[in-house]
């Protein structure tokens, strides 16, 4: 996926929403900027399929050697898929954060939070201010 097509949370997660069998499904990951800032990821803790997630709430964690960073869900719904191979190949997050580095897929139960997400240009502006 091209980042231009994605929506971003201020907390550096991205989401790509598509229609699947009449339901809205969001693929969720973390941005290239976030991966770079976190440096040397060593571990990732992911939720299981079936877990309910809520926009703005924690759904997992990534760890570097001496820091733990929560992953916040950009959307509200139920997890229908988890990229279980990711914790064993964390370098994927560096190499391909927007495709192979996806983390979870969420069947949306509420779309209102999507309005709060940023487009790529707005997100890049935010990163420039942070960086």
């Amino acid at each position: 996926m091209n980042p231009d097509e994605l929506l971003f949370a201020e907390t550096h997660e991205w989401a790509k929403v598509v229609d699947e069998d009449g339901a809205k499904v969001a693929t969720v990951g973390i941005s290239a900027f976030a991966v770079e800032q976190l440096t040397d990821l060593v571990y990732m803790e992911l939720p299981s399929v079936g877990t309910a997630v809520e926009a703005g709430r924690e759904f997992g964690e990534v760890e570097s050697v001496k820091a733990v960073s929560p992953l916040y869900s950009p959307v509200t719904g139920e997890i229908i898929a988890v990229n279980t191979s990711l914790p064993d190949s964390l370098e994927t997050l560096n190499a391909d954060p927007y495709n192979a580095g996806w983390i979870i897929k969420v069947k949306l139960t509420n779309e209102s939070s999507l309005a709060k997400l940023l487009d790529y240009a707005a997100y890049q502006k935010q990163c420039a201010e942070e960086g």
Binding site: Y43, E63, V65, K66, A67, V68
Partner: peptide, 12 residues
């Protein structure tokens, strides 16, 4: 595996 510990994770 120091991220388990209190000096990083504090109350968690």
């Amino acid at each position: 595996l120091q991220t388990r510990e209190q000096h990083i994770r504090r109350e968690k």
